[in-house]
Structure formats: structure tokens, C-alpha cells
Amino acid sequence: MEILDKLKEKFEILQSQEKREDLALVGTTEKDLIPLLVYLKEYEGYKTLVMISCVDWIEEGKFELVYNLWNPSKKHNILVKTKIPREAPKFQTIYKIWPQAEAYEREIHEMFGVDFEGNPTQHEELILEDWDDIPPMRRDFDTLKYSMEKFGEREPKSGIIIRKQISEQYDEWRRK
């Protein structure tokens, strides 16, 4: 696709894929991401930031930030991805390019703990008031354990009867 070729010339592109007719995907380095976003906005007509999301690649020790841009005149979406370290995750804010990024970054900060330097409101609570644990969307957060400890349950479940229990129960019964 034309736009992908153009980007490849100008930036360091780690992965690129044409997902659908109206959706393309590029992966780039941490350093090139903001210039790439600015370039797409200023020169290629990707004027709208649809959303920002985050993926936890716990095995690699990385968070992946995904910026979803929309070109209203060409009716085309592009996903721009980059990976940042999972330990003390830090990235620059883009709220000066798109003001709506402020809320998305605030949410990612809350759910994943990514620090967007320069975002003025990211430390305010969005959904989780009085949160007291590691950010809940991280994959090493045990949500069931947290829920049981904090909110309790009415009657502890004996759980699924595991296979060996069935034959043990049978053997016990037979011995009687």
C-alpha cells in the first residue's frame, strides 16, 4: 500500500501489514513513534486519534502501545504500534497533538501503570477510586484472588470435582 511504502522510506518500520482495505498496521520504534504520528497527521490527513490502547506482552517484558488513527477523507484507519519496556514503563504524552489523548493516557496509566510524561491529569482517578494494588489490567494481577480477598463470597465453592477425586471417592465407597 502506498502509505506504508511512504512510511518505510521515512521511518524505521519494524512491522507493517495491510489488515483490511480500510485498515493498516505499522510497528515502529519508541523513538520514531511521535514523529510518525505527527507526519501522518500533518501530511497524510490522518487527523483523528480514535483511541490509544495497550497490550501486556508479559513473556517479552514489554508493553505495546497502539495508536489508532483515522483519515476522514480517505476513510482509512491506521494502527501505529510500539513496544516499551514493562519495568517502569514510560512514554511521552501526545495530548499536545491530540487533546483527546489525555483521557486515553489517563486510562492506560490507571489500568497498566504506564507513565505518560507531561500529561497533566494522568494521576487523577478515572474509574478506580482508592485503588490499592498493582494496575489491574496487567497480566500478573490475579483478579480472582483479589476479588475473593476484598469482596468475599457467600459460600466457598468446593470447586470442580477433579478427576482423581472421583475414583478415590469410588474406591473409598467400595471399601466400605
Binding site: I127, L128, D133, P136, F141, T143, L144, Y146, S147, M148, F151, G152, E153, R154
Partner: peptide, 13 residues
């Protein structure tokens, strides 16, 4: 808890 029994953010009882 219903289907949110393991949610980090929904109460159970």
C-alpha cells in the same frame, strides 16, 4: 457476584 465474581472492581455481596 454473578458473572463479575472475579472482577477486580465489582462487589460480590
Amino acid at each position: 457476584g454473578g458473572m463479575y465474581y472475579d472482577s477486580y472492581n465489582a462487589i460480590n455481596r
